[in-house]
Design a protein around this nucleic acid. Structure first.
Lengths: 152, 152
DNA sequence: TTAAATGCAAACGATTTGCAGGCGT
DNA sequence: ACGCCTGCAAATCGTTTGCATTTAA
């Protein structure tokens, strides 16, 4: 039942924050602890509610700011499951996945049969009846690498 | 997405709508046209602005309602690139992807080295400097299949 | 004619921000 | 003491909804 669940080699979010020079306050520590002890995949609001249980004085803004801080420091991942704020494209085209350039924002499409087969294989091995899937690869496109684009 | 509802090119969004018994009005036709002519990956607001250029009387709600209609009819895909409305998890754990049950909402994690290698390969072949990636497989988990869970 | 579609504006939920006060170093 | 951290509430953003009106079969 240790709150340290899920941290390989005993390194915690807090440890990494310290290494990166991010000040760790009590409130931030609480958020970090909740992130580690929960099963993950918690919404910001869910984490806020959990935090409130342990510290009724913590504010919503603090939780949101902390999550953003951790996230931009690369200490946690922000996952976006299919929800709002979407972009739309015709589904009549053949299935494809996306390469998203984090510098210029350009979105490139690709299709890869081998990859598709592998997804099927994974779904099957987990006894999932697959309905759909999305794969996004984030990175820097060759043009931005060449132009030294610093934006983003 | 899933077994692409066998839609030969040449079939338009409007064709499919008619086949599915969705009434196609002038406004809906305009939205469909924009979806097809644009490069895809347009936000709802961007599509609204494009639509306004061609028909200054079209309302925002109509565009949003139409996108939602098309989307739930499976005629278009709603893609969510990394943005807001996220769920968070520690990034200290080994990289993994997610199986999302569309019935019960449960999220299962998996890691697959072969899949990872394939992502690297794809990124490399597109000359992308990969920073991160997310793969979500949507479907029905074995428990929901067995229990005949109709929710979702 | 009659239900469905639409525009407008208000409502909404999630997130962000301005600001005054608090805390840790 | 100083500046970052925080709580609160108001602001913002994208999206949805209520309602009166228009449209099209």
């Amino acid at each position: 039942m240790s709150p340290k669940t899920g941290s390989p080699r005993g390194k915690s979010i807090i440890d990494i924050c310290k290494e990166k020079g991010i000040k760790v306050t009590r409130k931030r520590g609480l958020v970090a602890e909740l992130l580690e002890s929960s099963q993950g995949h918690q919404s910001a609001d869910a984490i806020f509610k959990l935090a409130r249980e342990k510290d009724p004085t913590i504010g919503q803004a603090t939780v949101y700011r902390t999550l953003k801080l951790f996230s931009s420091a690369g200490v946690i991942d922000a996952l976006t499951f299919r929800q709002d704020h979407s972009k739309f494209e015709s589904s009549l085209k053949k299935h494809h996945d996306h390469l998203v350039c984090t510098k210029c924002g350009r979105i490139e499409e690709f299709a890869d049969d081998e990859l598709e087969n592998m997804k099927e294989r994974v779904a099957k091995s987990h006894r999932f009846t697959m309905e759909s899937h999305t794969l996004e690869i984030y990175g820097v496109c060759s043009e931005c690498v060449e132009s030294g684009n610093k934006a983003g």
